[in-house]
Design a protein around this nucleic acid. Structure first.
Lengths: 329, 329
DNA sequence: TTGTATGCGTTATCAT
DNA sequence: ATGATAACGCATACAA
């Protein structure tokens, strides 16, 4: 017999078991209680199919065991994979995930953060490039890939080292003239590090390089134009290309094929991210692999960490090179 | 001035504005109230940076504006895309998304449903093949791609028609000997419909066909063996292959390349799902495209629909064919 | 060790 | 139209 028509409450369980409300609460939360009481309560719980109401619990204890995860979208396999691993880490610790897609729109990003606060989540893991993003005051926020200042811990991969590694691998594969291609908001400084690392690598190795850098709203055709301009006498001016993401690399390889430039024979291409086809098959291209799994683990660990002293301002995880068919080795 | 050290509450706003608690609630919820009161409240809200506490709200109103979405994983781009569109539809209606990944493990699926109930979500959209899945009694659940019976509305694409369309397209492209390849749990009857439709298509057109059907735990090598067995005198016994998913088609094409069988010259391949590289670029292969966007819209619309009469037991959405480089046309 | 009573922040009912 | 007050379901301090 229950109160009203809703689900059974602790009150119902207490009545059914013939004990007091507080006793039920204790049993449910694993707080020691006399054995006979415990048994009676457990029997009643089972009989009524009682489940605690997380909303009442959250209201009372102001702990919701929910983490908000904010990413641009799930359509890009890099973000999807990231969310996948974050989910796994959260689930392992008994946390649930509230998802937010923003399409990289600063307004949506801010909105998502507001929503998270209002939803009383226990923390936020956010992949945003919005420089003006206002972090909440009372809920811990971990940023992925963007450093907002010492107050907000950031987890990223070694973008600089990755850029340099790309240059090194191309040269090691026999390239003598390199190019760097990048698309994306100029606000995002992490991809800039990829460029800086690449430049550093080229200069360290004494290899000449060209660059083509455009913003998010530039049509892809701009790259086709760039490639055409550097195409003379049946061959390209460069024999190695580093693209800022696998996605761009994939497109570039397509364009090169149309131009009858052979990959990797005539020109070798390296991307960045290390995403695989269908998640676990081949790499789309030779690439600098981000340690997605470790990044996810770091994010979760840090967002749940109460001790601020244990939260470094910036965690930078190592990348590695993977061959994917667009380089010789 | 606030009570305690937490966030400001309606009480604080009421005190600040010099009005009663109920008045604040009305203003916040857009219920008409005298203009001067409204202004005072709004000023106080802004001044204190007040935000309603969704947990208190949810407790009281038992409406949380959260939908739980349960999928096997996000690593497979088909699921990721589905979640993406569901998210968009939910957000458009002011709903939030609690995400659940299950890895297709029946235990995790059940757990996810329990969690959703406990979390007092307003509804569940679930992609599960667990035949024994126990649906909750009080929270509406929409199933994707699996029909659990009339009590649980199901949204799926026209798998049968898709299978037939695949056969038709292969034949239209000049194929005269077809094969059907499938991997997956024998419990899942929707992919079986793809097979049935394919068989129906072949028989209607009077074209011979072979089939290779294995369960989830069979290593991929089994397909390689199958192809080898049907490889005589430098060519395959069939010139058209229908794979139950794009993912499988992608692998098969790889194997064919290794065997020096040319695609689409020697054999043409059609997959199923219609997922694109990086979400919006080329199709992985020629394919039967699921109307993911419409499916997402249907799911959301139905899960939020209060009127049971408006919830058909089974919604079946049309598929279409898309060329993706593994067929001639 | 068990039971009782209060309050978490809202909504909604009911007098005013 | 506005303001006081009682739930919502649970946790917990406190009393027994």
């Amino acid at each position: 017999m229950q109160t009203g028509n809703g689900n059974p409450t602790m009150k119902d369980v207490a009545r059914e078991a013939g004990v007091a409300l507080g006793t039920v609460s204790k049993v449910v939360n694993g707080i020691p209680v006399g054995e006979p009481y415990k048994e009676k309560v457990e029997a009643a719980v089972k009989k009524l199919n009682y489940r605690v109401n997380n909303y009442a619990k959250g209201l009372k204890s102001s702990q919701t065991y929910i983490i908000q995860v904010i990413v641009p979208n799930l359509v890009n396999p890099f973000f999807a994979t990231l969310v996948h691993y974050i989910y796994r880490e959260l689930a392992r610790r008994g946390y649930k995930m509230l998802l937010g897609e923003t399409d990289s729109d600063p307004e949506m990003e801010q909105e998502s953060v507001f929503l998270a606060e209002q939803q009383k989540v226990d923390g936020i893991i956010c992949l945003s490039y919005n420089p003006k993003l206002q972090a909440p005051e009372k809920v811990p926020l971990i940023s992925i890939d963007r450093y907002f200042g010492a107050r907000i811990p950031c987890v990223s991969c070694d973008n600089y080292g990755g850029g340099r590694l790309a240059a090194e691998m191309l040269v090691e594969n026999g390239c003598r003239n390199l190019a760097f291609l990048r698309i994306g908001s100029s606000l995002t400084n992490e991809p800039n590090k990829r460029k800086d690392g690449f430049v550093n690598g080229c200069e360290g190795l004494g290899v000449p390089y060209t660059m083509k850098i455009v913003d998010d709203y530039t049509p892809y055709a701009e790259f086709e134009k760039f490639l055409q301009e550097h195409y003379h006498g049946g061959k390209l001016d460069f024999d190695g290309i580093f693209c800022v993401t696998d996605s761009l690399a994939y497109q570039i390889v397509g364009t090169l094929k149309e131009m009858k430039v052979r990959v990797p024979e005539d020109v070798q291409v390296i991307g960045f991210d290390g995403i695989r086809q269908f998640g676990d098959m081949d790499y789309f291209c030779s690439t600098i692999v981000q340690p997605v799994e470790e990044m996810a683990e770091q994010c979760v660990q840090m967002v749940l960490e109460k001790d601020a002293a244990k939260k470094p301002a910036l965690v930078c995880l190592p990348v590695r090179y993977a061959k994917g068919g667009t380089t010789r080795v």
